[in-house]
Design a protein around this nucleic acid. Sequence first.
DNA 1: AGCGTTCTGGAACGATCGGTCCAGATAAAC
DNA 2: GTTTATCTGGACCGATCGTTCCAGAACGCT
Lengths: 209, 209
Amino acid sequence: MPTAARPNKRLLQGERSRDEILDAASRMMSVRGFDGTSIADIARESGLPNSSIYWHFNSKMGILAAVMERGAERFFASVPTTPPTTDDTPESYLLRTLRDSGVAFVEHPEFLRLFVLLLLSSDAPEVKEIVERVRAHGRTNLHALIQHAFSTVAPERAGAIADELADFAMAGFDGAFLALQATPSVSHERLMEQLAEAVATLGRRIVEA
Amino acid sequence: MPTAARPNKRLLQGERSRDEILDAASRMMSVRGFDGTSIADIARESGLPNSSIYWHFNSKMGILAAVMERGAERFFASVPTTPPTTDDTPESYLLRTLRDSGVAFVEHPEFLRLFVLLLLSSDAPEVKEIVERVRAHGRTNLHALIQHAFSTVAPERAGAIADELADFAMAGFDGAFLALQATPSVSHERLMEQLAEAVATLGRRIVEA
DNA sequence: AGCGTTCTGGAACGATCGGTCCAGATAAAC
DNA sequence: GTTTATCTGGACCGATCGTTCCAGAACGCT
């Protein structure tokens, strides 16, 4: 088992190997799935023997957990979360932030592919836990984004609007990602623009109600 | 290999076995994925020996193809495709038909789960072919639905509106399905209502432009 | 009764699976 | 220079994988 502390400049070769194993595993699992990727595949792809793989991670499931952990970290780090400026309308704020978030989606296809695969087909509790945490985190982000968007025009109802529309917006994201995976030629910018317009309109309608 | 013709009332035991194998395979593959489901699993689940499985289907991939073929057939048969009545507005028609389509989604989770899994992680050409066909069929359905919806208020522009919104609507469906799989407590009715309202609004805006 | 087709029961195949073991290479620590 | 912890190389394990084979049960046809 690897040590958590890395005191000096010594062989960070170990850490580099660890990363290369995770790179290879992430790449292959996001395309073939967890069960479709063997330890031998990862060894071949990373150029390291399976003894190294089992030294860094104690099991195949351990590799998966590490891949998802690192992937989630990087993914959420790339999702922008800037509050609206004073002259932002719900429309302008949603358009900008959803478009930016869409870019994050396009930039992390490996993580998201594997995420959806696990969401649909994994029953291992340690994986389910990560999947649920990632999804909850994503929903919280989206909820805050919508609440932000309407805080300028209806501060006291923005929370309720976000409650109402968070799932819809999330479904829009998920669907846009799937569309992109199924048909790379579709424009994710346009989908994000339409989603922003839809959320803005639905929110406005709640404000007016 | 099984014969296509089944002339008389003889042992339809064969056909029943075939169906039970497909039932078991569909059930397991939609939960564990293709690679996560073994022939032994299917044999155990269906109560039939693997020799029977290989007599009806020549390979594991053959089972998959048959599962998807039958699933797609049943799925599209359950999707309602009724034209609008003369007093339908785009809103009323979209609301009704998308809500009905949403029911079809809820009623065929096995097929759709496996469909998404294969969409994301299968590289076998025979599977890719089916996946693309199913998706194209679905998109065509949705396109026709949107065109129908706006044919009453803007007959000459309904086609262009459908071109513009078909991908967005499809993403809404995909996302709603994923949301339901991730969090069964979300209301698919509400998601479909919001999607209908969003499509109606975006379409209206194109009409007015 | 005999024949032929359809389907089942179960053993068996080589390949690959996830995982283990251990000898040795490497270099920081003393 | 010896020790110690980190990491690699590769053989090896039993289990399971997809697939094959074949004897025979079950039943329609003549």
